[in-house]
Amino acid sequence: MNRFLSITVEPIDEPSLLASRSASSGMGAVVYFSGVVRGLEGGDRIAALDYSCFVPMAEHQFHQLFDRLAARGTVESVRLVHRIGRVAVGEASLWIEVVSAHRGEAFAACQWVIDEMKRVVPIWKKPIPPSDACDAPSPDAVGSNPHPSA
């Protein structure tokens, strides 16, 4: 199974991701999902979410999920990008694509990865109210916690 993972502070470039798609002739289903920051968080208006991440563990946990997906033998490719740092309302924080032979497998795999990510991948979000919004990224959003590599 082909895999691509990126945890990045850069905006998610969906056109570029779509242009670089690869699927063999036996694949009949491509499912992709883009998760976008909503303007309400817990009923309160926000300007952005600040995502922080324990990057080495997040990468490890994502790859463990991909290993489990590969073991199913029904997915040819998974690509996932998770943005961290400050993500404004309306911008994408998550992009995932699954390529499989049939749509049922592709939809199920895409849903499964997202569900498991929300259970085990160490990423957190902090709402930023409109009054606190600014263009500069949060200094503590990108793993400033001192932590060793894996």
Partner: peptide, 11 residues
């Protein structure tokens, strides 16, 4: 090395 953290919230 130990890490302690709250429930995760990716996505």
């Amino acid at each position: 090395r130990v890490s302690l953290f709250p429930p995760v919230q990716g996505g």
